[in-house]
Design a protein around this nucleic acid. Sequence first.
DNA 1: TGGATATTACTGCAGAACGCAGTAAAATCA
DNA 2: TGATTTTACTGCGTTCTGCAGTAATATCCA
Lengths: 226, 226
Amino acid sequence: MSARLTTSSYAVLGLLAIRPWTGYELTQQATRSLRFAWPKSERLLYSEPKKLVERGLATAFTESVGQRSRTVYTITNEGRDALTDWMSSTPQPPTLEAEALLRLLFAENGTIDDLLAALDEMAEDAARMHEQVTTINTGYLDGEHPFPQRTHLSVLFATFQLELFDLMIRWVDFAKAEIATWPTTEGLGMTDGTVAILNNIKEHRSLLEAPTGAEARRPPSGRQRG
Amino acid sequence: MSARLTTSSYAVLGLLAIRPWTGYELTQQATRSLRFAWPKSERLLYSEPKKLVERGLATAFTESVGQRSRTVYTITNEGRDALTDWMSSTPQPPTLEAEALLRLLFAENGTIDDLLAALDEMAEDAARMHEQVTTINTGYLDGEHPFPQRTHLSVLFATFQLELFDLMIRWVDFAKAEIATWPTTEGLGMTDGTVAILNNIKEHRSLLEAPTGAEARRPPSGRQRG
DNA sequence: TGGATATTACTGCAGAACGCAGTAAAATCA
DNA sequence: TGATTTTACTGCGTTCTGCAGTAATATCCA
């Protein structure tokens, strides 16, 4: 009984549609390009192509390099057909996993400094990823794309990544300004800042660009109705 | 041998720190509030509190409602201590999972319409989530927060969600405008639009707000150096 | 009043996915 | 020539998911 195909199967199939890869190369390529759309473990990248072979969507052949061997996976026509079918199916909603946001939600169990440190870490992670994507993409202008005919796709994809990382960095700034008005993490409830944000949400005004007045307001002297 | 605590353990512990919940209530609360920071399955929300009890971080007691029973979980002092410790640890980098972006990366295996449909679906998902968050948050202005003293936390968290969903919607618009200049999904390489985007990336200019000139450019008649 | 549907309240199980440890050859560096 | 890095994986235990199944209570509507 062969296991069913998952989105991860199609992610690997998509890579194999570009060219044949060894298991090791798949792990390298996936951390470079798939990481920001479909982050998967190295372990999976080694297991998944075997499942594809079992299903007849890829073939495997073993090369020898000295005493050591490696397996090269190649997509089959059935694989290309399966991939094409999948392309016309409806994608699942995007999901975000962020431990730093979990720290914000449960901030009352820690200090203001804990919260600020978590947000700083998130901003630094975003800045690192932003830099990596920028470096890779500016390289494309110098002809450094491994598959030049695919540049239009990877560059358009990169615009989303960069905007996302930029948002994270800007939002952390905004959040830190707001938190700077908090005397503590706990029990504040409806602060002036909270009310200002809620009014912006209600009126569908943008939240980060136009300041909510956080810097115009003076820090609360204690708790507000909460 | 008791299993180690995962981030998901702390997510549940964070909920229990607010008040005691039954397993069923945890699943409800998690889909309402945790979904956008730490999306977990219903199944896990039933299993996780048992692990916490086993570890002494929560206690369980069984109530009877007629013939049916339900288990109420309450955090212990040890649980609060563990949560406080966790709050000061370094969070993992945020990750995004988006099937629609995977369709973009592998777009050459489908049609332009497949790609546009996937992006539209992503924008609609984002619009739905934006609306849900907006509805819940405007309700807070009318005193509808179940834990009023926590309003400052959930509202600041909401600002990130709304900005993220807004970005997704705006980016899909941008991407669709770019794709409208493509005669096909495959083999285009360095189109005029791609070069324009890459120059913006290199110069650290914003990508979505200031148009790259997509509407000023005429659609390419065929392939560019690919 | 009663029958249909929805909500509450879970459990078991198979399979997907992860993280870590382990193995070892080849290549590179100093 | 020895040390480190890169290549190239596998096995195993744990985590997590999705689905099916079970069943009592609550609500709706005719």
